[in-house]
Computed example of a mutant assay.
Amino acid sequence: MSPAASLSTIGFDADDTLWQNEHFYRLTEQRFAALLADYAEPEQLSGRLLEAEKRNLQLYGFGIKGFTLSMIETAIELTAGRVSAATIGEILAAGREMLSHPVETLPLVRETLEQLAGSFHLVLITKGDLFDQERKLAQSGLGELFDAVEIVSDKNIATYERIFGRHGGPEHSMMVGNSLKSDIVPAIQAGSWGAYIPHDLTWVAERVEEPVGEPRFRRLGHIGELVGLVAEIAESRR
């Protein structure tokens, strides 16, 4: 498949690509560490919490609800079942606050989407809790700029083959996101372009090596560079 195949569809990740997300997880984890300071050092607690999150992904999926349940499970394990009802209540309150936190759109997102809308078929492809992702999209005010919205339980090769298959074909599509593991590598393996935009905070479970040898892989400094990349790809077809 030629890396210069024409581009008609652009898929966008949401969390930490269009708006802040991991930042609120980190703040909540700090709050969680303070609650359990008598039982574990912050680094030890983070490790135990990460183990619980990975273990529970198949049960709860991605998102704040699964994160909250994993915090409760970790608290029970670390305290050998002695965690107080008041502490569990604090953990639940922290989860509720995350679910109601205002959406903070990242710089240059709206301007970039507005420049691409109309010329390309824009698809939001996000994973996680359905209600929470719908809430964030509505609050972001970006929904009108997308031609389609796909909220999925996970992102893998089959996900992109299926979604881009409905929206022009993988070979004519690009996925834009901050996660190499979920947004970029599987999209490229499905036959699409992958535009990687690193975020200062990325969950450790989403980190893999950059596919630097792939002709359809691009790394951008920020989302504002996407318009230029799309123009470059279009020029290469002439």
Rank of each mutant, 00 (worst) to 15 (best):
T28I: 01
E29N: 10
Q30G: 11
Q30H: 14
Q30E: 15
R31Q: 11
F32Q: 02
A33R: 09
A34H: 15
A34D: 13
L35A: 10
L36F: 05
L36S: 04
A37F: 09
A37R: 15
A37I: 13
D38M: 12
D38H: 14
A40R: 03
A40S: 06
E41C: 06
E43Q: 07
E43G: 01
Q44Y: 07
Q44K: 08
L45T: 04
S46V: 06
S46A: 14
S46N: 11
G47P: 02
R48I: 06
L50E: 08
L50C: 04
K54W: 00
K54G: 02
K54C: 11
R55G: 14
R55T: 13
R55V: 13
L57E: 03
L57F: 03
Q58H: 12
Y60T: 10
Y60F: 13
G61K: 00
F62G: 00
F62D: 00
F62K: 01
G63Y: 00
I64G: 00
F67M: 08
T68P: 00
L69V: 02
L69S: 02
S70M: 03
S70D: 02
M71E: 10
I72P: 01
I72M: 11
E73V: 11
E73F: 10
I76N: 12
I76K: 15
I76Q: 12
L78H: 07
L78S: 08
L78F: 05
T79K: 07
G81F: 04
R82S: 12
R82E: 09
V83H: 08
S84A: 13
S84T: 15
A85G: 13
A85D: 12
A86M: 13
A86P: 09
I88L: 11
L92Q: 09
L92K: 07
A93H: 06
A94W: 00
G95N: 00
L99Q: 13
S100G: 12
H101K: 13
H101D: 14
T105Q: 05
L106C: 06
L106T: 08
L106V: 10
P107D: 09
P107Y: 13
L108N: 14
V109T: 10
R110H: 10
E111I: 06
E111D: 15
T112I: 02
T112N: 03
L113V: 09
L113Q: 10
E114P: 07
A117V: 12
A117P: 11
G118H: 07
S119F: 08
S119L: 13
F120E: 09
H121V: 02
H121I: 01
V123K: 09
L124A: 11
L124C: 05
I125K: 10
T126C: 04
K127A: 02
K127H: 05
G128H: 00
L130D: 12
Q133S: 05
R135V: 03
K136N: 08
K136Q: 06
K136H: 06
Q139C: 03
S140Q: 04
G141Y: 15
L142K: 08
G143S: 11
G143C: 05
F146M: 06
A148Q: 11
V149F: 06
E150M: 10
E150R: 13
I151M: 09
D154T: 09
K155L: 02
N156W: 02
I157T: 12
A158R: 11
A158T: 14
A158G: 10
T159C: 04
T159S: 05
Y160V: 00
E161V: 01
I163Q: 05
I163N: 04
I163L: 08
I163E: 03
G165I: 06
G165N: 08
G165P: 02
